[in-house]
Design a protein around this nucleic acid. Structure first.
Lengths: 113, 113
DNA sequence: ATTCATGGTGTAGACAATCTACGTCATATG
DNA sequence: CATATGACGTAGATTGTCTACACCATGAAT
């Protein structure tokens, strides 16, 4: 039903960074992580489930986040992710990489003289 | 000889934008475009030939740039690209897309409160 | 009772862009 | 003549995101 925006390919390369950054606030499950990013970015960044879960598994496989199943009183299962120590280091790396890219692109875009 | 930085996957999604922006200064051939971007970005952005030429052909196929072979007095052949009218419009689109992404990511990265 | 919305996790396969690693040809230089 | 450099190019691997599904549970509406 949703008109499905033409193309979103916007996220490429930044998703890991966004997820890691979000987990600084404390453990969260996938759905909540995506929701947080969407809200904080004021709807500019929308993470599809087909990007979200593969990304989480990827990050877990690399040891940057760790997961634990949790079941609420109501029997609701959710997989909570937390940032590991190496994940925190990786966050710094990715943050600086983003900064670098941002500065570099801005230099190229600088208005003509 | 250059030590070849470990991974460059940095450019994803920005290359078209960078090329289009560079052509605002006037027609140029591939090698020169790559050189310009590298210099202006102070070596942060390095475009491999395996990214450069496919990108140029892509942009040409989409009608955003147009090409013409030129031969110098010395018989040196080079393919000069210029920005088309639609290319100029596309540049605006991509520039705004980048701006959007930049702002959105910055929002998510904003230091914890 | 059963449909429906919502919350939550997940996969399969398509697609696109970049990279590495080649190859070609020409000119200029030692 | 060998080597460097300028210039263009392709093939194939890799990677990350997207679309489009499927599953399961709860709670609300008809």
């Amino acid at each position: 039903m949703t008109p499905a925006s033409p193309r979103n390919q916007l996220l490429y390369g930044t998703l890991d960074l966004l997820i890691l950054r979000t987990l600084v606030y404390g453990p969260a499950h996938g759905h909540a992580i995506a929701g947080h990013i969407q809200r904080v970015s004021e709807d500019a960044l929308r993470i599809e489930t087909g990007s979200l879960y593969p990304a989480l598994h990827r990050l877990e496989a690399r040891g940057w986040i760790a997961a634990k199943w949790k079941t609420s009183d109501k029997g609701k299962r959710a997989r909570y992710y937390r940032l590991t120590r190496t994940g925190r280091r990786q966050l710094a790396v990715e943050q600086s990489r983003w900064q670098q890219l941002s500065v570099a692109v801005t230099r190229v875009l600088r208005p003509a003289d």
